[in-house]
């Protein structure tokens, strides 16, 4: 594949090295800093680095520390709310569910950002991502009374801030699916 910039030798060598350092740090934690753990650790760090390079040869994203920290705080808060919400629905004798499948037109473009977006949405109160199609994400909503659109827009902005991305002007709204109207509680 033709590329416009030829990466220097140092950059080519740095890439596997950086990843190996990250995996070594993970192993070090898993082995609880036991030096004997490296007998298994070194081969697995090598395998993990190889797998990582095969699956994602180039890292396209950059993480912004401020955005990432703010995201982490928001994530913890929302996953607490999400867990409480679904637990109460499960325990209440009346089983308060009124599910709906919706589609959301994403303003995030890069695939890695969409993956983080989808994973975050699944831990938010009442929403579960269930597939991508072109620029839309399909999601299952536990209760059609929830104001999903506003929280999706909010999460999308926070995910964009993690990577320092600009959101596209198009999208950011719910689209109907299966012939039903948006917010249709019947």
């Amino acid at each position: 594949m033709p590329t416009t910039t030829t990466p220097s030798l140092i950059r080519v060598l740095m890439r596997p090295l950086r990843r190996a350092v990250v995996f070594a740090a993970v192993w070090w934690v898993v082995a609880e800093a036991d030096p004997e753990g490296w007998v298994f650790g070194i081969p697995f760090v090598a395998l993990a680095t190889g797998a990582s390079l095969a699956l994602t040869p180039t890292r396209e994203w950059r993480i912004r520390p401020v955005g990432a920290l703010r995201y982490a705080g928001y994530f913890i808060q929302q996953s607490v709310l999400g867990g409480i919400d679904v637990s109460m629905r499960a325990i209440k004798p009346s089983l308060p569910l009124d599910p709906l499948i919706l589609r959301y037109r994403m303003r995030l473009v890069p695939e890695y950002a969409r993956v983080l977006f989808a994973d975050t949405v699944s831990l938010l109160p009442g929403t579960l991502s269930s597939g991508f199609e072109d620029d839309t994400m399909t999601l299952h909503v536990l209760d059609c009374e929830l104001d999903v659109e506003q929280s999706l827009r909010d999460v999308e902005q926070r995910v964009a801030d993690v990577f320092g991305l600009d959101l596209s002007a198009e999208g950011g709204e719910l689209a109907a699916i299966d012939g039903g109207a948006v917010g249709d509680c019947r």
Partner: peptide, 10 residues
């Protein structure tokens, strides 16, 4: 799936 992911995570 909602119940599994969200409640178990928390």
């Amino acid at each position: 799936l909602h119940a599994l992911t969200k409640a178990d995570n928390l």
